[in-house]
Each structure stands twice: as structure tokens, then as C-alpha cells.
Design a protein around this nucleic acid. Sequence first.
DNA 1: CGTTCACTGAGCATGTTGCCCAGTGAATAC
DNA 2: GTATTCACTGGGCAACATGCTCAGTGAACG
Lengths: 186, 186
Amino acid sequence: MLSERPASAGFLYRMTIRTTTLEGGTVAIDHLDGRIIALLAREPRIGVLEMSRRLGVARGTVQARLDRLQSNGVIRGFGPEVDPAALGYPVTAFATLQIRQGQGPDVRAHMATVPEVLELHTTTGTGDMLCRLVARSNADLQRVIDRVVAIEGIVRASTAIVMENPVPLRIIPLVEQAAEDRERNG
Amino acid sequence: MLSERPASAGFLYRMTIRTTTLEGGTVAIDHLDGRIIALLAREPRIGVLEMSRRLGVARGTVQARLDRLQSNGVIRGFGPEVDPAALGYPVTAFATLQIRQGQGPDVRAHMATVPEVLELHTTTGTGDMLCRLVARSNADLQRVIDRVVAIEGIVRASTAIVMENPVPLRIIPLVEQAAEDRERNG
DNA sequence: CGTTCACTGAGCATGTTGCCCAGTGAATAC
DNA sequence: GTATTCACTGGGCAACATGCTCAGTGAACG
């Protein structure tokens, strides 16, 4: 079931695509790029050869597009998507933190040491930081929060427990949007 | 550079592992599982064969572990990680929505139609829903929010724009934690 | 004490990859 | 207008990884 992508050095393919780069590091992707990403999202284990067959283009083309999408940074990688729930962490929560002036760096470093902190953002608005937490249970969430706020510098933490996840993290609609925009604008 | 995972039906490998399943669909993973996931996270394009070499175990073992991790649901997939910023959406924001009683389902359906909504959760606490948005610019964020709140049922929306992302979405520390817990408990 | 199970190490046919090449049409530059 | 560049096609070849199978081993389990 788990097949592979041979480990390889892998230089850029013979082709180099006339990349359309917009302002600010933005990369324009066309419809074919969009289809490649969508196909890859739907069937991650598909091969370049199989993709070229499905998309009706030459293998080299898919190869080149993929290389470009990766060196572009559009596709950051293919890391395994691990489900925290399956690991025993079925509870997800978002915590808004208020930080004491100048303690930002300390808090950031501290948060990075807590495994249950899956991501951390600094934001505008009421809070100063927003983080995503997971825990083994609602009760366990208390332990996690205690550990999080166990550092000087966090003035207040406000937690919202996730009940449902109607829209799981997704990117395809945005990719299609971006591909269509490219078609229209050029 | 972009190598592959041959498209294949792929039945379970000959081996079936004495799976340790805990209460509530939780799967216990051991140290080897942890190393596999970590290795895969670090070098997603590595092959089963290469992994077995690096980890010092037989190819079949890695194959079987990986199959199990996937059928377990611990590894959900290997979808491409697309960077919204590279696509021209460098602005990320979190919006807290307050929903009018009974309008939840309508709002959920509506949110799913907005490409810039990357994820949506229903939560406890002050707000009723929390969503992650992206936009082409701060100005564009207004357009996105307008589109989001363009449905009856959203009483109030409070938005926090992300400035920095000190801890990007990660899972490895949790995986290691889970692997260690397994070692200790059983 | 026999069975089950995870794992090893080996093998083989098949299929994919990495890389190369010549040729085409279209957009770009001179 | 003409030459060049570039994305893409379709073909080819050697090297390699995969999918699947098999026999054997040690440890945990009933």
C-alpha cells in the first residue's frame, strides 16, 4: 500500500518553465498546475508517469511542473499527515494568550517546548497570540493549559474547545481559485 | 527531484502487526513507528527501501508498519503541502463568529463555499465558530470577510490578523511524546 | 508446550524513475 | 522579418524500487 518515491538527488529536469512571477514572491499557477496539485491531493501516492497519463500530457511536462512548483515554494512538501486523535489526542482547542510587554520572545520559546502546542501565531486584536492545542481529554486539557501558562509573561489565557470541524484544513478550493485567476488575468 | 510512489492497489503486506489499540480508537505507537513518522516528515520523498536502510530494519517491517499506520488512521495521507503565500495569499487571519441560534448548518455550508476559508471549527466559549482565512492583502481581507459574513445567521465576526507564526503547524513533538508514553506504559 | 505473531533476509517480475535526445509550435528578442 | 528561446512531445535506456512470496527465528501468548 505504501509505495514509494525513490530517494534521489534529483536535479531540475531538462526543461525550465517560463515562470510567471508576480510581485511579492507570488507565483502564478495555471490550470495544469492546478490539476496537478488537485490530483496529487486526491491521490498522493500517484506517480509522475501515472499523472501524465491521467492529465494527458508528457511525463517530462509533469516532472518539470512539479519541480517548478516545489522550487517555487508553492508545494512545500509531502509530509505525512498525522491525526492527533489517532495518537490519543482527540481534544483540540484554541487558546488566545495575552502577553506582558516585552515577554513575547520568552513566551514563543516556551510554547515551542510544549508538544501539545501544534501551532502558534502572533496576532493583532484582543489577544496577542493564538495557539492550537491538543489534549488526551477535556481533563487533560487542563494539564496542557497549566503547562502553557506556567511561564511568566502570559497575563491571561482564554480557551475555546473545538467541538466539530465542519471544514477540515483544505487548500484545493484556493488552488483552483488561484488557477482561475491566472487564466483571467494572464 | 519529484520521484514517485507508483500507483498501485496495494493490499496489506503479508504481515499483520499485533496492534495495540487503546480505548476510544486510540492507537499506541512505539519508538519505531515514531522514527518512521519523523523520518518521513523530514524526508517525505524517501522510499521504503531507503527507510529500512536508515532505520536498520528489514524492508518488510517498514512496509508493514507504514501500512498499519495508514489503516490505523494515524497517518491520514501524504497530500502536498501548499503554501498559500506562494499562491498570492500572504495574509492569514482567524475569525471568531457568533451564530444566530439554529443557523449553524446554513453557516457551515456557506463557509465551505468560500475558497479563502481554509478551515472551520465550532467551538465552546465566547464565539461559536472559529475559522482560518487567507487573503491577498490586508485590503483584500475585507473582501473575504464581507463574503464570509454575507449570510444571515452570522451575528458578529471578530478578526485577528496573523503577524508572525513562531510555531508553524507541527506534529513531530507530539508523535515523539506519544511514542515515549507507549514505552513507559506498555 | 504448541501456536501465533513480528521480523528477517532473500528472490523475482514488473513498473517507474532519472536522464538524454531530436523535433515542433509559439512567443520573445533582435 | 528572422533568429532565438522556451514549453512540450514522444521516444529510449539503464538503474532501481516496488509488490508479493517464501522459509526461518525468537518471543509472547493461550
